[in-house]
Design a protein around this nucleic acid. Structure first.
Length: 641
RNA sequence: GCCACUGUAGCUCAGUGGUAGAGCACUCGAUUCGUAAUCGAGCGGUCGUCGGUUCAAGUCCGACCAGUGGCUCCA
């Protein structure tokens, strides 16, 4: 005896079908084409396997390749197919987790030896076979004892099973010879996987815990269409080409040397770029901020007061005391404590608040070797660091002020930032009333911008809530750049006070603010963002003057002098090379403007302008007009060319 | 710090146990050119470092250093 259920389709129509009918059967009832295209179903808003019986009234939509959720499904199933292949080639491999991720999927294995690149090729070929065998993905609901029996040989899975709550449904998915503990859902058959590639193998701690054993992770990606896969691989290649480490060398901006791992050497051009950024921040901060400099090295008295000596010591470069032979001093890893000392050194009136200390001092953090990476993760760097001392009543206005400052800064570079609002964590200091006020003030300032923001409940610092500014780079990596953090703890710890209009001492609040994060990392992001083709105001070399032949050498030299006198970073390329060769070098070197001087231009006190990236198209103009153009673009910090 | 991979000329790379190679860059010479690589010659490496195996090591083994991809962490 079968009970009927009512299934509502996206167009609003209702089908009455026997309980236990699958989405596939309903799709077949709608049309053979839909049934062929079907990958899964969305039942009451949740993605289900196509062949899972539906036993109650439901809304149902058939998922095809076109559905945004389908790709995740394919990639999750790809991970299973990867595991299927690995198990065939490495029968003893224990399996960890295999989820879909942003651009593909991975699976973790416990194997006797790590995978080699050759293994990856074999595994990829085997995945093709598994897909071609077109196994169905079969879902089964099992009870705990059955699950334990099935994965008796697999300690990782047994550990996972033991953590499942009793009220959780345990499901097992099987494709051909491979079964996996998995919540699903999956594509109906392995044959639906056609376009995939394994990308890399790497170690990864089991459960992401560095105290647990290391598993071998294989990363891969999969798409529904070949051109999508090709496009993704092409994107990876493009990202590799604009990698700041490669461009940093090619454009002669910086280098690293084994003598100073994690600390950059800046060339003349790189230093020009670095200083231009610092100058830009200085210019924007002029007036409202007070730039200060504090020592780079401190004895442990300060770090004990700040708490770093206990919690952050591992990351600090220690300095040995010659007499006691003990490490009792350190290079500063952060500016905050020294700013507090300077603040506390004299009495402050409420009239001075908000008082904004900014600095570009050099910081050192002893990052573990494996964490270092180009300019994005270094041991020596400088932040555009600011600490604001203010009264609690000034928070809302101050946060608005700082947000405008930060967003305007990013806008200059054409960078899009997304905002995150992190609220009180479980372990925190201060009263609930204090947190209520702080969060309300931050939130009000956030909403005043009208920008969308993501809520990160519980992610605030123990000393106060914060707003983080994330920027996404060309490779799709997201970087936390700026931050606005309220700090109620530091003023207590350092006993910071100001004198109020009641002539009594009051506790200020501190706001930590950074805009670029660190200049080093920000430059890395800019290099990749612009692919090395900096806007005129930032380009280390703005103009390259190229006399066509020796006869125009003097005219070229005069032009360079004139440009330099106008404050333009111009260089002469009068080398004994062909015009074509020198133009090519200018293009490859991403110089925004090439000013070519032939006899006609030499006679008329002009130049033939070639704009970076615009090809052969040239624009003959007077030196005067050109100077006006370049200085204007530099002054306004225009993004083009 | 952990796992794997990589390290040969300034750069990109070839060289799988038998006398170190190519292209570009650089230097010199010729060429004086109208918008993405002119021609020729030359210079340049104790093959990351140290140790081991071997008659013989860039090549095989070990340790260390550095880089890369991840994990952990993070500006």
């Amino acid at each position: 005896m079968s009970v009927s259920i009512r299934v509502t389709l996206p167009d609003g129509s209702v089908r009455e079908v026997p309980s236990g009918t699958t989405a596939r059967e309903i799709a077949e009832g709608i049309g053979a084409g839909l049934a062929r295209a079907a990958l899964a179903a969305r039942v009451n808003g949740t993605v289900w396997d196509l062949d899972r019986p539906i036993d109650a009234d439901a809304t149902l939509a058939i998922l095809t390749e076109r559905d945004p959720d389908a790709l995740e499904l394919l990639r999750h199933s790809s991970a299973h197919i990867l595991a299927t292949a690995v198990r065939e080639l490495f029968p003893g491999a224990a399996i960890g987790f295999g989820p879909p991720i942003e651009n593909g999927f991975y699976y973790d294995f416990q194997v006797d030896r790590p995978f080699t690149p050759e293994d990856l090729e074999r595994i990829e070929a085997k995945m093709g076979e598994v897909a071609a065998r077109d196994y169905p993905f079969v879902r089964e609901v099992v009870d705990r004892p059955a699950a334990n029996r099935r994965f008796a040989d697999d300690p990782l899975k047994l550990e996972r099973i033991s953590e499942l709550r009793d009220d959780e449904t345990i499901t097992v998915y099987t494709d051909g010879p491979f079964q996996d503990l998995c919540r699903g859902p999956h594509i109906p058959r392995t044959g639906r996987l056609k376009h995939f590639k394994l990308l890399s193998a790497a170690g990864a701690y089991w459960r992401g815990d560095e105290r647990r054993q290391m598993l071998q992770r294989i990363y891969g990606t999969a798409c529904f269409k070949k051109d999508e896969l090709d496009a993704y691989l092409h994107r990876l290649e493009e990202a590799r080409k604009r990698d700041h480490r490669r461009l940093g060398r090619e454009l002669d901006l910086f280098m690293f040397h084994p003598s100073a791992p994690g600390a950059a050497f800046w060339t003349e051009r790189g230093t020009t770029l670095y200083n231009l950024l610092v100058e830009f921040v200085r210019e924007r901060q002029a007036g409202a901020f007070k730039e200060i400099k504090t020592p780079l090295m401190y004895n442990k008295m300060l770090w004990e007061l700040s708490g770093h000596w206990g919690k952050y010591r591992e990351n600090m470069f220690m300095v040995l005391n010659k007499e006691t032979n003990e490490a009792d001093a350190s290079l500063k890893p952060m500016n905050c404590p020294s700013h507090y000392l300077l603040y506390a050194a004299k009495k402050h009136s409420y009239r001075e608040l908000p008082l904004r200390f900014v600095t570009f001092d050099v910081l050192h953090r002893n990052e573990v070797t494996g964490a270092l990476s180009g300019l994005t993760r270094v041991r020596q760097f400088a932040q555009d660091d600011c600490h604001v001392f203010l009264s609690e009543g000034q928070i809302a206005d101050e946060v608005s002020f700082l947000m405008d400052f930060i967003l305007g800064y990013y806008r200059t570079f054409g960078l899009e930032a997304s905002l995150k609002f992190a609220t009180r964590p479980e372990t925190r200091i201060g009263s609930d009333e204090m947190w209520d006020r702080a969060e309300a003030a931050l939130r009000a300032a956030l909403e005043a911008t009208g920008m969308p923001y993501e809520l990160n409940p519980g992610d605030g610092a123990f000393y106060g809530p914060k707003i983080d500014f994330d920027v996404t780079d060309s490779i799709g990596r997201s970087w936390q750049l700026g931050t606005i953090q309220l700090d109620y703890a530091a003023p207590e710890r350092f006993d910071l006070v100001y004198v109020g209009d009641d002539n009594a001492e009051h506790r200020p609040v501190v706001i930590h603010r950074a805009v670029s994060g660190s200049f080093e990392r920000f430059i890395a992001i800019l290099i990749e963002h612009f692919a090395g083709a900096f806007p005129v105001w930032l380009a280390p070399e703005q103009v390259r003057v190229i006399p066509i032949s020796d006869a125009q050498g003097d005219a070229g030299r005069r032009l360079v002098e004139r440009l330099q006198a106008a404050g333009i970073r111009a260089h002469l390329d009068d080398r004994n090379e062909t015009l074509n060769y020198r133009v090519r070098e200018g293009e490859v070197g991403k110089v925004p403007y090439m000013a070519v001087v032939g006899q006609r231009e030499a006679d008329s006190d002009g130049l033939a302008l070639r704009v970076r990236g615009a090809g052969k198209k040239q624009d003959v103009m007077s030196a005067e007009a050109f100077i006006a153009r370049v200085t204007d673009e530099a002054r306004t910090r225009a993004l083009a060319p």
